[in-house]
């Protein structure tokens, strides 16, 4: 699982259908080498989450995913006590007649009664190789959540008042993604390596489509990618991401399309454009004229 060079990593990613250009491969390489979290920002659907999945698959490591939302707290991300079991245990202690309060307290607040949530799982001992921890869309969580992360990400440890500090012997590889719906706090950013993923070049996107939708004919893929690139030049509210390109190519393949036609595009615009205004704008512009630019 160790990559000696950036090239090696880049090739391994490509072998697992992830086409990364060299600067991105360098950032991932350094995240692995320096054991630092990697913060990926970029528009929706450019393949941020996919990196974590690919890394896990490629190195045969466990993927622990934490989808962020507002109000994430210690109980849902780090640990929670198993209250039901604790209460039963208290009854049991009583029934057995042991009345030493201290001992009872110690017993019911032992690791055995702990429910481990994703962040705690990620630094646990029991993995034979450290897992990949994906903290997805951190911008959806509130700022308080970022504060929980600081201790974990800089020292690879978590403090539980009743038990003490739990420290990872092998730090997990952490990938954090953000769609930038709000600014992430600098304290968190500084603990991470940072990489901004842009929309791919035509050539790169074509390679991505070829890798991910092998069923699509070469001609169709070429047209689809060129069409999406034309769309990205328009002034749309939400530009289509790579995810949309892939969805569209898959949809067209499922329809047995061999090449793009104006009707086909009209019928399937919903796969790439997700706002009514945008669809209306493309229609006004004329699907045919865009197709002409693409050379269909």
């Amino acid at each position: 699982m160790n990559f000696a060079t950036i090239d090696e990593l880049q090739q391994a990613l490509a072998a697992h259908d992830y086409i990364a250009d060299r600067p991105l491969a360098t950032a991932i390489f350094l995240a692995l080498k320096l054991q630092k979290p990697l913060l990926l920002e970029g528009e929706a659907g450019v393949g941020k989450t996919e990196i974590a999945k690919t890394l896990a698959r490629m190195q045969d490591r466990h993927l622990i995913r934490l989808q962020c939302y507002e109000g994430l707290d210690v109980n849902t991300t780090i640990y929670e006590w198993n209250y039901t079991r604790q209460m039963l245990q208290i009854r049991l202690i009583e029934a057995l007649g042991a009345s030493d309060a201290h001992a009872a307290l110690k017993e019911i607040f032992s690791p055995e009664f702990l429910i481990k949530r994703p962040l705690l799982q990620a630094i646990e001992e029991s993995w034979d190789r450290p897992p990949v921890l994906l903290i997805d869309e951190i911008d959806r969580a509130d700022e308080e959540f970022e504060a929980f992360l600081l201790e974990l990400l800089s020292d690879w440890q978590i403090s539980i008042p009743e038990i003490g500090t739990i420290r990872a012997s092998q730090p997990p590889t952490v990938i954090i993604t953000s769609n930038r719906t709000r600014e992430i706090h600098d304290a968190l950013k500084r603990r991470c390596l940072f990489y901004w993923i842009d929309y791919p070049s035509l050539d790169k996107e074509l390679r991505i489509v070829n890798a991910k939708v092998p069923g699509a004919s070469e001609r169709l893929s070429r047209q689809v990618v060129a069409f999406v690139h034309e769309l990205r030049k328009l002034d749309l509210f939400k530009l289509p991401g790579v995810a949309e390109t892939l969805d569209w190519a898959t949809a067209l393949t499922a329809l047995d399309a061999r090449e793009l036609t104006a009707e086909l595009v009209e019928d399937t615009l919903g796969a790439i454009l997700k706002y009514q205004d945008d669809i209306a704008q493309v229609r006004r512009q004329g699907v045919r004229s865009i197709l002409e630019k693409v050379g269909v």
Partner: peptide
């Protein structure tokens, strides 16, 4: 040069505006 730039970019910069 380009690898060096990539390494410096991802370690020293943490805001897109600064790129």
């Amino acid at each position: 040069r380009s690898d060096f730039r990539a390494a410096a970019r991802c370690t020293l910069v943490c805001r897109r505006e600064d790129l």
